[in-house]
C-alpha cells in the first residue's frame, strides 16, 4: 500500500468575527486508500499530539448523503470528482508531494463559524418559506388514489436527491443558491401534490433566497458541475418559467380570516 506526504494550506479562523488565514501543514504517511476526511483526521491526530488545536470541519454520515461535509479543495467544491462529496473523495486521486488548498465554502450567506465550518442556515430558511406541501398528518388519501406517471416521479426524485450541502453556492462565481432552491421546487412541482401551492411556493422561496443575500444566477452552471448528486440545470429553467407566471399573473395569497362559524 502506498502512502503520501502532503503539504496542506488550510483556512484557520477562530470564530465568526475573527480574521482568518491560510496555515500550512505537512501531513505524512497518508494511505492512498484513506478518504479525504480521514486524511484530515490523521492531520488532527498529529496536531493533537503536538498540542495544537485540531482543524474544525463539518462531517457526519461519511457516506455521501447527509450533506454536512463542505470543503473547497484546490478551488473545486468537494474536490472536483464528479458526483462525489468530500467524504467519498479518496486520497488515491492525489500524488505524493501534492500541495492542497482547503478552504471553507465562501458566500455572504454562509459565514464562517470556525476554520472550515460555515453556517448554512440560510438554506433552511428557503425551505421554511415554502418548501413543503401543506398537508397535516392524518389527512392523506390512499397513496394509490393519486396516480403519478413514472417519468414524473423519476424527475421529482432526481431533483429531490439534493443533499443540501451548498456546493452549488460555493462553486457559483456569483454565490447563487439557484440550483438548491430550484431543486427543492422542481421536486415538488413534478408531482401532482405540489400543484396547489406551486406559484405561491415559487415566489416565496425565491424571495427567501434573495433575502438571504445569495447572488444571482448567471447561467454559468458551475453548480451543476459541483453538485454531488448530479442535479441538472433543467430544474432552474423550470423555476425561471414558473416565476414569470407567478409574478405576472398569479394573485397574491389573500390571508383574510373568515372567522369560521
Amino acid at each position: 500500500m502506498s502512502t503520501l506526504n502532503l503539504t496542506l494550506h488550510i483556512w484557520r479562523q477562530a470564530d465568526r468575527k475573527a480574521a482568518g488565514k491560510l496555515v500550512t501543514y505537512k501531513v505524512k504517511n497518508v494511505s492512498t486508500h484513506a478518504s479525504f476526511l480521514e486524511m484530515l483526521d490523521i492531520l488532527n491526530e498529529q496536531l493533537i499530539e503536538k498540542g495544537e488545536e485540531p482543524v474544525a470541519f463539518d462531517h457526519d454520515c461519511r457516506e455521501g448523503i447527509c450533506g454536512m461535509c463542505s470543503l473547497m479543495i484546490n478551488g473545486r467544491a468537494h474536490g472536483g470528482q464528479r458526483a462525489t462529496t468530500v467524504c467519498q473523495l479518496h486520497m488515491r486521486l492525489f500524488k505524493d508531494g501534492d500541495e492542497i488548498y482547503i478552504e471553507p465554502w465562501r458566500a455572504y450567506a454562509f459565514p464562517v463559524i470556525k476554520d472550515l465550518c460555515v453556517d448554512r442556515s440560510a438554506l433552511d430558511k428557503i425551505v421554511t418559506a415554502g418548501g413543503y406541501i401543506s398537508v397535516n398528518v392524518g389527512s392523506a388519501p390512499d397513496a394509490n388514489d393519486v396516480l403519478i406517471p413514472k417519468e414524473y416521479a423519476d424527475r421529482a426524485f432526481e431533483a429531490a436527491a439534493c443533499i443540501g450541502c451548498g456546493a452549488c453556492v460555493a462553486a457559483c462565481p456569483n454565490g447563487s443558491a439557484m440550483l438548491y432552491t430550484a431543486a427543492k421546487l422542481a421536486h415538488l412541482h413534478n408531482l401532482p401534490q405540489g400543484q396547489p401551492e406551486r406559484l405561491h411556493r415559487t415566489k416565496a422561496m425565491v424571495s427567501a433566497m434573495d433575502a438571504a443575500g445569495f447572488g444571482n444566477c448567471s447561467n454559468h452552471y458551475e453548480c451543476e458541475a459541483a453538485c454531488p448528486k448530479d442535479i441538472s440545470r433543467e430544474v432552474m429553467a423550470l423555476v425561471n418559467r414558473d416565476y414569470a407566471k407567478a409574478a405576472w399573473v398569479h394573485r397574491d395569497r389573500d390571508d383574510k380570516g373568515d372567522g369560521g362559524g
Partner: peptide, 13 residues
C-alpha cells in the same frame, strides 16, 4: 405510506 405520498415523497412508481 399515504401520508408520505401526500407530502411529496417521490417513491418509485
Amino acid at each position: 405510506i399515504d401520508q408520505c405520498a401526500a407530502m411529496g415523497v417521490p417513491f418509485a412508481r
